[in-house]
Write a protein that binds this DNA or RNA. Structure first.
Lengths: 235, 235
DNA sequence: ATGGGTAATATGTATGTACATAACCCGTCA
DNA sequence: TGACGGGTTATGTACATACATATTACCCAT
């Protein structure tokens, strides 16, 4: 006699939701009831429902029970590949170029983004990433030397700031903001496109333990760049 | 005597990774060992490590054990708000407009995207979404009538196709592809911008049970549109 | 009626035990 | 040499039980 897995329970409940037997707003039977129906332990049902809740399919509240949520595919998973991986995945050769390095007082918007006081200096890097011999990304980055003093000594001609930071700072929180813009003269020159051409803009901020590490503005030629996100599978 | 929670275990392991005691590539002690150290049951450690694996912090393999992954913030969570929610969040008034509706044989790229055979007809909708009196999104959508025959009868003048589909088809899989482009004449007219202005493009495909339901191309004026993604917090 | 205290209830989690399963090790046999 | 097959080991999961906790319902006193 095969024992019922939490996956079985999950699949049945999901099937009932997909099939219309359980509609958004409906209350799913209690754990004890389901355990009886499936002939399994309550903990097994608990895990099934807990995972459905994590996937955003149902909502659970103590004492009230479990309810089916509206089918809003509101959360998608976004793969954020490193530039290098993204380029090498296409078969092109990755090359990195440091265009500028200075320590200076950042402008107000950067100060705000990094939570720096007035007059505090930070590391400013400008780089370019090549896919074979076409420019793939122009990078304009500020790094807070308060949080990452080691960045002052790092050799950013040899290694890209993103790769360096990943190695230096484990497990941080990241925010990405994506938008579209028209390239200005300087940006077009960097990317080898015509001024006015559409560029795909990524603004990325990174924190560790609540302290902002870095803020990068990444430009990609709009004609080629694609960003893909998918909903997490509920099962 | 408080019993040790799986959250305690999770927090300690995470702390060791953040603090550098456990570095990427290192092997985390086995469940049994940790259970001994923490004075708790192995199942408790199991849940802690399982959730760290789901968060992408560690990698687990039978027989080999648990290893710390490189701190690649490769997965971010993307909130995909409905157009209406997105607009109303800014305080603007949402208005929806149906510009065109026809049933026709879709072009080859749409046929491929929806997995339709040659000659199969589908529903083609063109719509516009307003934030107060500025155009916020132009929508060009194809819906497979094979998969959603009810769409033939739906009144898309009264309700937007996305809202209608969410109500009609629960729990589907969604793919988003984002890019930047220059608006052509027609697109600029729809969005009330100048031809050549950057637009933020979302291409969205939706499936149910592996069958493609719909494919939409959504255009937003690049000057204003922002898309935000954040990494999931590991704890 | 009303506010507050209390019991009832569904979910949340810890434990000890048992068995399942994947993957690697290593010895055997062709 | 190499294919095959058991033994070993760490993770994966099921179960019965017990207790924890949030939240609602209800009752009682004012």
């Amino acid at each position: 006699m095969k024992r019922t897995s939490y996956l079985d329970v999950k699949a049945v409940i999901l099937g009932q939701i997909r099939g219309g037997a359980l509609r958004p707003g409906d209350t799913v039977p209690g754990e004890a009831t389901l355990a009886g129906k499936f002939g399994c332990a309550r903990v097994t049902v608990n895990r099934a429902l807990r995972e459905l809740a994590e996937a955003g399919v149902v909502e659970r509240r103590r004492r009230s029970g479990t309810r089916v949520l509206a089918a809003t595919p509101r959360d998608a998973e976004l793969e954020v590949p490193s530039v290098r991986a993204e380029i090498e995945a296409t078969g092109a050769t990755y090359r990195y170029e440091l265009l500028g390095r200075r320590i200076a007082a950042p402008p107000a918007d950067i100060r705000a983004a990094l939570g720096l006081g007035a007059g505090v200096r930070a590391l400013h890097l400008r780089c370019r990433h090549w896919a074979s011999d076409t420019a793939h990304q122009a990078e304009d980055r500020w790094i807070s030397l308060d949080v990452v003093p080691a960045a002052r000594e790092a050799d950013f001609a040899a290694i890209g700031p993103n790769d360096w930071l990943i190695r230096a700072m484990p497990l941080s929180r990241v925010e990405h903001i994506f938008s579209a813009a028209n390239a200005d003269e300087a940006e077009a020159a960097l990317l080898g496109i015509t001024p006015g051409d559409a560029v795909f803009v990524t603004e990325r901020r990174t924190w560790i333990d609540g302290r902002a590490i870095t803020r990068a503005r990444l430009l990609h030629p709009g004609a080629t760049h694609r960003l893909v996100a998918r909903t997490r599978a509920p099962i």
